[in-house]
Design a protein around this nucleic acid. Structure first.
Length: 320
DNA sequence: CGTCTTTGACCCGCGC
DNA sequence: GCGCGGGTCAAAGACG
């Protein structure tokens, strides 16, 4: 789960961030090794001056890169420290016994009740989170353990803004769904619709769609399981996603937290599950990429770094 | 005609 | 054991 940084050695772009040397980017300098080789011999003073200017810029960029790398290392260390603390806490608080592991089959009712919440953004999600938390009492330690043991399929809840006048429970998320049931539940006068993914016959994913009891303009979509096929459409949704919270995922590396331990604040719980949630990670990466690419300084620096890398590689090849 | 939606019946787990 | 409630099935109808 190295979201913050991937393998450090392979992802070192040596970026130069700051006032972008766009002229350098547009007219990339000769690769660095060439400055120190005998093969590079400027023929006049003008070229010599340009070379020294470029060399100075390169030196400055290298210094900036060094500073940024050190800062990155510092943040990475802090991240790893926090991560190890979370892992320690996880191992201490949630080590189910063999009997507990051999408990009876999962109860779907309890699974739904113990859904965890991830705050997706701040636009309206806060209110929903509060409503959802008030609805569900804080899970006891036993309840949370059994919750962790019981659930198998990935459960994701999404709240969408729709027209309250529109009574249909159709949510366009790009996948193809087949409705197989509808039921009026006790806690909500609005009917709950049950859908199965019909894009692939063997796809195990189901979804439940129901209007929020508190706000009719909101539709709560609960996805269970993971698609065993690609996304049939690049269109994610025509509706506005207000918030997203998810329950535990399938097998694999999971973070287990004892929510009854008071030392762990709800924000921390949320943060841990945010990190754990693969979909959230994808969205986060997209948002980061989007905000970074909007920054002209970053794009210039990135282009500069990439061009520098290309020339460096070219240098290595040509010297070989 | 094939696919999808509707809807009542049925199944199953849970609490009492 | 019984009732309740959520989830699923499947027949019938609608629709393109």
């Amino acid at each position: 789960m190295d979201l913050v940084r991937g393998p450090r050695s392979s992802l070192n772009l040596e970026l130069s961030v700051g006032p972008g040397p766009i002229d350098v980017m547009l007219h990339p300098p000769p690769y660095q090794s060439e400055f120190h080789s005998n093969r590079y011999s400027p023929t006049n003073n003008k070229e010599r001056n340009q070379t020294s200017v470029l060399e100075a810029k390169l030196t400055k960029m290298n210094e900036e890169n060094k500073i940024l790398s050190e800062q990155l290392d510092m943040y990475y260390e802090k991240y790893m420290t926090l991560k190890s603390k979370i892992d320690d806490r996880t191992n201490n608080c949630s080590s189910p016994t063999e009997d507990q592991q051999n408990e009876a089959s999962p109860s779907k009712k309890r699974r739904t009740r113990n859904d965890l919440i991830i705050k997706f953004n701040n636009t309206g999600a806060e209110r929903l989170d509060e409503a959802f938390q008030n609805e569900s009492p804080p899970p006891s330690q036993e309840g949370f353990k059994s919750y962790l043991e019981e659930i198998k399929p990935k459960v994701t809840k999404i709240v969408m803004q729709t027209d309250p006048a529109d009574s249909s429970l159709v949510v366009k998320d790009g996948y193809q769904w087949r409705k197989y049931g509808q039921k009026v539940t006790r806690d909500n006068p609005s009917p709950r619709a049950y859908f199965r993914c019909s894009f692939a016959p063997s796809c195990p994913v189901k979804k439940k769609v129901q209007r929020s009891a508190e706000d009719k303009s909101l539709i709560v979509v609960t996805y269970e399981g993971e698609h065993n096929h690609g996304h049939p459409s690049t269109c994610l949704s025509e509706n506005r996603v207000l918030s997203c919270y998810t329950a535990n995922s399938t097998s694999g590396s999971t973070i287990t937290l004892d929510l009854t331990q008071h030392g762990l604040k709800p924000n921390m719980e949320r943060a841990c599950h945010e990190i754990q949630n693969q979909e959230f990670q994808t969205v986060l990466v997209k948002q980061m990429a989007s905000s970074l690419t909007k920054d002209p300084g970053f794009t210039a620096a990135l282009a500069n770094a990439i061009s520098g890398k290309i020339f460096e590689n070219f240098s290595d090849v040509s010297l070989d």
